[in-house]
Amino acid sequence: MLKLESVSVYYDKREVLKSLSFQVRPGEIVTLIGANGAGKTTTLMTISGLVKLRSGKIIFDNKDISNMSDYKIVQQGIVHVPEGRHIFPQLTVFENLQMGAFLRKDKKQIKQDLDYALSLFPILAERKSQQGGTLSGGEQQMLAIARGLMASPKLLLLDEPSLGLAPKVVDIIFDVILKIHDEGTTILLVEQNAQRALSIANYGYVIEVGKIILTDSGTNLLQNPQVKEAYLGS
């Protein structure tokens, strides 16, 4: 479904992704784990077209999207829920959700997706006319994911969705990720919480300073001594 082939990305003169290759197959949950500054966010930003690649290729559904403009990539079905939530602070919860469906015209289907998103996070329905910026951190993360769903993604890119959240909210978020996946959406998940991420992922990639250094199934990576030592704190 998604394939990165030797992708290199530079910020100014510094190579941040060094000939990175990996793939996501349809219907999978794939996780990308790695230390701070390894290049996880950059990888997602490159996929969604906000950061341009210097060389290599990104293929999505047999189409080369490497040089596509960002909104066309969204139209292809790749939807990015960024690190730090990025809620529109002075739009209401409802308007934030509307913005998620910005490129769509199928009114009926949008309404259905809205109902679905609100059923996953009932609290958002109660907060519908509240300004996004006044939501709690957990609610903002829920809104960020719900807004992503409003674009009707085939592939959902989630960057650190559990960052800074209370354990209970983290549970809710991971539950929802599984539900979204069950509904048929493919997921590429970037997480600090490697334990949680690997335990729900079909497949995992470990990234270190811009390179994939390990790849295996989620369960195998959980047992891998190298991963245990570096990312699972044991």
Binding site: D70, Q75, V79, P82, P89, M99, G100
Partner: peptide, 12 residues
């Protein structure tokens, strides 16, 4: 309010 997010939701 958020230029980066505007790009990400597909606003031209």
């Amino acid at each position: 309010q958020d230029l980066k997010m505007a790009h990400l939701v597909g606003i031209k």
